[in-house]
Amino acid sequence: MNFTFESNESKFLLRIADTSLILAQRLAEMCSKGPFLEEDIALSNTSLDLFGRAEELYKIICRIENDKFEPDELVYKRNERQFYNLKLVEQPNEDFAWVIVRQFLHDVYAKEVFTELLKSENSEVVGLSQKVLKEIKYSHLHAKDWIERLGLGTEESNSRTQSAVNHILKYIEEIFNFDDIDKTYLSNTAEIESKWNAEINAVFAAYNITRIEVPPLSMRDYRDGFHSEYMGPLLSVMQYLPRAYPDAKW
């Protein structure tokens, strides 16, 4: 299939949709593997929210692109280099600390982005953003609570959280290398970055986590479809069934 996008708005929304989808898939991997029942439910609920968010965004994108493809095709038929999610969200569920750190760093960012999108000229995007912000509130508080407990918990929980942070911070820089497309639809990108930094620094400082200096990395940008090595295996699991049995119906 040909997955070229004509409109800059759909290119922009695709970044957010793919980020939601891939994080949803990562959290879905945790279903039945949570440390206890309530936590299992919390992670699965958050995953559902993110799948739903992605689905609504894909529907908007398909309409903008005159329905030349369907949401399911965007999910199941694109190859790795045709996905435009943040590398942050494809990082694996190495342990529970990784799940929580990844979620917290994402949620603070997503909260700022959807707050900006309340000013969108697209009324469907505005409606979706209103809804999404109410949903992010739960996930964001949940992740922040856990950062507190893990950071201030035991020596072991703190060191595991610190090690998750040290790995995941590598994938932050690209988020704020906003390009012209981002700047067309996000009126205040500088503020998104400064608010993100302010909140992350304050929370880390309060809960005994260090924000290490990340050396410059030679990684190409997610906006051009580049990924870390973890993306391929994720897609192979997510896309296996529709690729093995094309057009299978439930």
Partner: peptide
């Protein structure tokens, strides 16, 4: 119709 929650499986 207007969906209740974006991830509601009942949509």
């Amino acid at each position: 119709i207007t969906p209740t929650y974006t991830g509601c499986p009942a949509k």
